[in-house]
């Protein structure tokens, strides 16, 4: 099998796009040549085979996308090509969001989940937690999830016309912060093992969302996973 080339765009309107580019630049997958690309205009987007929407402020990213004439092209892109959203990107890829700014906000949609913005509280309540993630390279090593003003997945919805939702990682209830709507009362931990609110990474077809920030760690396994599984369907 020859060396294939793939252009992975990172939406560079606002937020942690530089960190994603750094990891993509470092990422080595034997038979693939990965070309990272900063996406700021519809022309940039057209050149991409896949897209990463970084962490940042979802309201800001959505507004800047609208101003750049990217909103409609992005909605089209999400329907056809692999897209991964981290944190704010996850909010944009969800179908429904609670705690949106007054008057609502623009979403791209694509994943049948309902999210709550800042569901685990403000910056001060941000936290890190080790995660067991299905399907990553070297699965016995936990992935360090960095949650900063992170959204909480409130509910996974079923839609027969859409690919099934594949849960990749849950946060262990004892690790959950005791604030926000993601908070849980300690005695009920047992019931929470299949509570949707503990889901922090999931995949639906070619779309992937993580409510934490893999780009802020030195661990490139999630990027590796995205390229191998969502982009190349491996």
């Amino acid at each position: 099998m020859g060396r294939q080339g793939v252009t992975i765009g990172v939406l560079a309107l606002q937020g942690a796009f530089a960190e994603h580019i750094n990891i993509l630049t470092r990422l080595k997958i034997s038979h693939l040549a990965i070309t990272p690309l900063l996406v700021k205009t519809p022309d940039d987007l057209q050149r991409c085979d896949a897209l990463i929407i970084p962490g940042g402020e979802s309201t800001t990213i959505a507004l800047l996308a609208k101003l750049a004439g990217l909103l409609e092209p992005l909605k089209g892109f999400v329907k056809e090509k692999p897209v991964w959203g981290t944190c704010a990107g996850a909010i944009l890829l969800s179908e429904d969001v609670q705690g949106a700014k007054k008057g609502g906000q623009d979403l791209l949609g694509g994943i049948n989940v309902s999210l709550e913005r800042n569901g685990w509280g403000s910056q001060v309540e941000s936290f890190e937690a080790p995660l067991a993630v299905h399907g990553l390279r070297d699965p016995d090593t936990p992935f360090n999830g960095v949650f900063i003003r992170a959204p909480v997945i409130l509910e996974l919805k079923t839609d027969p016309s859409r690919p099934p939702i594949d849960i990749l990682a849950r946060i262990s209830p004892p690790l959950l912060p005791a604030v926000g709507s993601g908070s849980v009362s300690g005695s009920e931990n047992g019931d929470l093992l299949d509570d949707d609110r503990t889901v922090v990474a999931l995949r639906q077809g070619r779309l992937l969302i993580t409510t934490f920030h893999p780009e802020l760690t030195r661990d490139d396994r999630f990027h590796d996973f995205f390229v191998r599984n969502c982009v190349y369907g491996g």
Partner: peptide, 26 residues
């Protein structure tokens, strides 16, 4: 890359079983 789809064909049609499968996996 644009044609690949991660959904496994066996579970794609039945949403209820999908969710349950997803949950037990979780």
């Amino acid at each position: 890359p644009t044609q690949s789809n991660g959904a496994s064909p066996s579970t794609a049609v039945n949403p209820a079983s999908t969710l349950n499968a997803a949950r037990s996996q979780g």
